[in-house]
Design a protein around this nucleic acid. Structure first.
Length: 425
RNA sequence: GCGAACGUAGCUCAGUCGGUAGAGCCCCGGAUUGUGAUUCCGGUUGUCGCGGGUUCAAGUCCCGUCGUUCGCCCCA
């Protein structure tokens, strides 16, 4: 038997209503804020990710699905969404129409060891906002994330953490300061952190090892060493959030895995997801557009992990929307008439399940019951001759003969409610 | 890439000291003619993940491998 590759899974019909719900709410809420959807390719030139995400990040160094096409180009399945959106922004010269607000949804690919809330093909919904440098934009974006997460039903158990990562002016001096500090305390750090110290010193601050946490308790933190511009930006953001009464926590030890971030970084975490507890994360990337060859344009964005949201919301199996009518024909002639009647009813907007695969009336009725249809419609030879059908209201167990020609009118009147496909709620 | 646990019917799982593979659910059929979801009766479910090894004998013990899960790493 051929099965899916490791860390890659089907999303079966049972789970689809929840996914559709998550996407529908994103469409609605991001739309309220003026965001439009964008769909970028699932694969791009490898160089795009190497340059945007950072050539020395784990994602680029060891987690990308990279291959050569027949022309010899090195391509990669996208490991995240921002790089492509920035490329599109630059390629389409969108700096002429600022602000540019887009959101995306779709699969991302990273070659990682699967565990709870982490797969090799996973799905993200993300937003990117190009143009404003003002912390007003940061605040509005954060409000939007929290509004979305609250809307879908996660208001409890969520924590919003923010930090400032500084900018090209203040981060290098701080970095030197931190390295100096770490060198002094190196003997107290775990092996990983001793390695990280030179390569990615900020990451040491985020280490979960108890010994490291103790050792870095007195380490200098970025927010104490921000330049005046970054200090002002950060304090205005905090002011806006307080004003909006959106609870948040400042986590001076939070860092971002991708190289392009500066200033505002944030993360929304949830208990109940085990080690992979971030449901949404993002930040500002003011330098990325210029770095990718575009007209310098500040920007901010975030991404949410759909599987993680789904894990938190999953309330068991989702029932499919039941049909209005289960149509049970007996015999070949009745089947022919049934097919036609089913089409007539569907043209009137009704949801109709036509019995397929024959079977006795008993077994057909069994299927009708299982389908949760409100009505069963039986057509046998006797009915064909009399030009009637037997209409049974399943919940009541009552049935009547109706003239064939009157069936559409009767059912349309009775089942006027229209299914909207919001099966989750 | 590192560490650990687990893989038995479509699903959830039992299977003792190594001795002829089980339950519930689901599904299918029947309970006098053409009527579901309740009841009763009957029935099908299997490469015990896969491949080696030990043994008279392996679902059970050993090795490998694939997969899943939980950590580490990393991240949404």
């Amino acid at each position: 038997m051929i099965q899916t590759v490791r860390g890659v899974h089907d999303i079966l019909p049972d789970a689809i209503p929840l996914w559709q719900f998550l996407e529908a709410r994103a469409l609605a809420i991001f739309g309220q804020y003026g965001f439009e959807e964008i769909r970028t390719p699932l694969f791009e030139k490898t160089e795009l990710f190497a340059r945007a995400v950072g050539a020395t990040t784990d994602i680029v160094e060891k987690e990308m699905y990279t291959f050569s096409d027949r022309g010899g180009d090195s391509l990669s399945l996208r490991p995240e969404g921002t790089a492509s959106v920035v490329r599109a922004f630059v390629q389409q010269s969108m700096h002429r129409q600022l602000p540019w607000k887009v959101w995306y949804r779709g699969p991302m690919f990273r070659y990682e060891r699967p565990q709870k809330g982490r797969q090799r093909q996973f799905h993200q919904i993300g937003c990117e906002l190009f143009g404003p440098e003002d912390p007003l934009a940061d605040a509005e974006l954060l409000a939007m994330v929290m509004r979305y997460l609250t809307d879908i039903g996660l208001q409890t158990s969520l924590v919003l953490e923010i930090n400032s990562l500084g900018c090209p002016d203040c981060r290098p001096p701080y970095r030197d300061l931190l390295i100096a500090f770490l060198r002094q305390t190196a003997s107290h750090l775990c092996d990983d952190c001793q390695n990280r110290m030179e390569r990615n010193p900020l990451r040491v601050l985020d280490c979960k090892q108890e010994r490291c946490r103790a050792a870095i308790a007195t380490a200098p933190v970025m927010i104490d060493h921000l330049c005046p511009g970054c200090t002002h930006h950060f304090s205005r953001l905090k002011g806006h959030l307080e004003d909006l009464e959106r609870p948040f926590r400042i986590n001076p030890h939070m860092v971002r895995g991708l190289d392009y971030y500066n200033r505002t970084a944030f993360e929304v975490t949830s208990v109940g997801l085990g080690a992979q507890n971030a449901v949404a994360a993002g930040g500002r990337y003011d330098g990325l557009v210029a770095q990718m060859g575009g007209t310098p344009t500040p920007a901010i964005g975030f991404a949410m992990g759909m599987e993680r949201l789904a894990l938190l919301l999953d309330q068991g199996k989702n029932r499919p929307a039941p049909p209005d009518v289960y149509l049970a024909p007996l015999g070949e002639q009745a089947e022919q008439a049934g097919l036609k009647l089913a089409e007539t009813l569907r043209a009137q907007g009704l949801a109709v399940t036509l019995n397929l695969g024959g079977g006795s009336l008993k077994s057909q009725m069994k299927r009708a019951g299982r389908s949760q249809a409100r009505f069963a419609l039986m057509i046998g030879e006797a009915e064909l001759e009399k030009n009637v059908v037997i209409l049974k209201e399943m919940a009541l167990g009552q049935q009547q003969e109706i003239r064939h020609s009157e069936v559409p009118g009767f059912l349309v009147n009775t089942c006027r409610t229209i299914s909207v496909g919001d099966g989750h709620r």
